[in-house]
Design a protein around this nucleic acid. Structure first.
Lengths: 232, 232
DNA sequence: CGAACCGTTTGATTCAGATCAAAAGTCCGC
DNA sequence: GCGGACTTTTGATCTGAATCAAACGGTTCG
């Protein structure tokens, strides 16, 4: 892999504390691959061969049942996905595809498991990572079961707004179709949900969103750190 | 704690492989407590002081937002809960209450974290446990986002039917109100959902359920190991 | 026994969100 | 600039599920 990308990977919480030799070892057997947009990376039900690290680009995790499909998460650099399947040596529960042109680092699953056995610091980091991911899923499920779709959109906007500098505007990082299924609704409904948020100061211009009545929007959204704050 | 309960706790995957001395250590500082039904055990937002082990009885995990409440999981003996919060030294994301009279083993969080640092086998078990829990949450979210409430009920019945011996009948382990919110619907709707499953061979007599047309029910439910099978 | 209470069921109605259909933008290559 | 394909929006309608309301069993207890 290119030397300028190494530090970014090494800085991931998951790898930051492990022994230098072990990190080297992983990078030796890993390989970095380029993918065009909309390439199918993994399929639910397949055995987990590689830990994936999004170095560049964006990846969508999604799941299928009957003939419905839903977005489960959108992964931005630099971050790993499907760690749990790798550690359990189990099949994937979700599928993944690139959303944009991406570079993905593929680390063979057995090497991850092997070094996990030998490197206590790495084991600690894995536990922290898994705990965070578990808690993220709990939050997603609470979000889905306890809120209406307008509330989910409102909270999503507030969250992005904060992440993007809290200056009264934000840019949607994905197309609206994906955002819709991520929030558990249809594209048509997302459009209408934006409409109902108009009186709360939400104005839409393509992917550019302006929030002019933050207080009103928060009153509607009732954000809760136990559901929305990634840090808790 | 009572000596006859120790083996059951020790046999948990989480504790089975750890060093005997370390298990002793945990049991020294742990204490077993009895609770009547409907006792509030933990509250979301509070710091995680103890790892909880349900030794006997049943515990409901639930979450609240706005003034809605939803059941997130029902814990049966012998099993732990809120491991992730303990390992992250974070606040609870869910609340818990006893459903029946229960005995709960409380293990101080710092002791868990301490021994996790020193016992590699315990660390491995923790990783396995967290992975399983993460994947359970993924399944719950898929179940919730991709299925209708009738489908969720049908799959729940098929699952319980298998767990209870697959002899054409099963007994609901919880009251119907709790089952309803566990499945993400209202009690009224659960009642109607049982009604719509009538033509598929589902007959209800209080908590006793008989399934007389398993094939038809499966055709409707379309169970999927990647959503329903706890083993995957 | 009968009153009060709780969980469940049934019925009528409302509402959120999905679906179906079509118009309006938007992007892109020729 | 124009045609075509795709995304987004808008409109009309339908459906699944929630809500509101009341009836129906059980159970407990005075």
């Amino acid at each position: 892999m290119r030397s300028e990308d190494l530090p970014a990977v090494r800085d991931l919480d998951l790898f930051a504390d492990m022994e230098p030799g072990h990190f080297e070892e992983l990078m030796q057997v890993a390989y970095l691959q380029r993918f065009p947009p909309q390439v199918h990376l993994i399929t639910e039900g397949d055995p987990a061969d590689f830990l994936h690290v999004v170095v560049d680009g964006t990846v969508e995790l999604f799941a299928t049942a009957n003939n419905r499909e839903t977005t489960m998460a959108v992964i931005n650099p630099v971050a790993t996905f499907i760690l749990a399947a790798v550690l359990k040596d189990a099949v994937y529960l979700m599928s993944a595809r690139t959303m944009t042109a991406s570079r993905i680092l593929l680390i063979p699953a057995e090497n991850i498991r092997d070094i996990f056995e030998r490197d206590a610091a790495f084991a600690r980091s894995i536990v922290q990572e898994l705990s965070v991911r578990y808690r993220d899923m709990v939050k997603l499920l609470k979000n889905q079961k306890l809120r209406t779709s307008v509330e989910r959109l409102a909270n999503y906007l507030l969250h992005e707004h904060t992440c993007q500098g809290a200056n009264g505007a934000l840019t949607l990082p994905t197309d609206k179709r994906t955002l819709a299924t991520l929030l558990g609704m249809t594209p048509e409904n997302l459009s209408r949900a934006f409409g109902t948020l108009g009186p709360y100061g939400v104005s839409v211009d393509g992917a550019r969103i302006a929030l002019s009545k933050l207080n009103d929007l928060e009153t509607l959204a009732k954000p809760n750190p136990l559901t929305d704050d990634p840090a808790t």
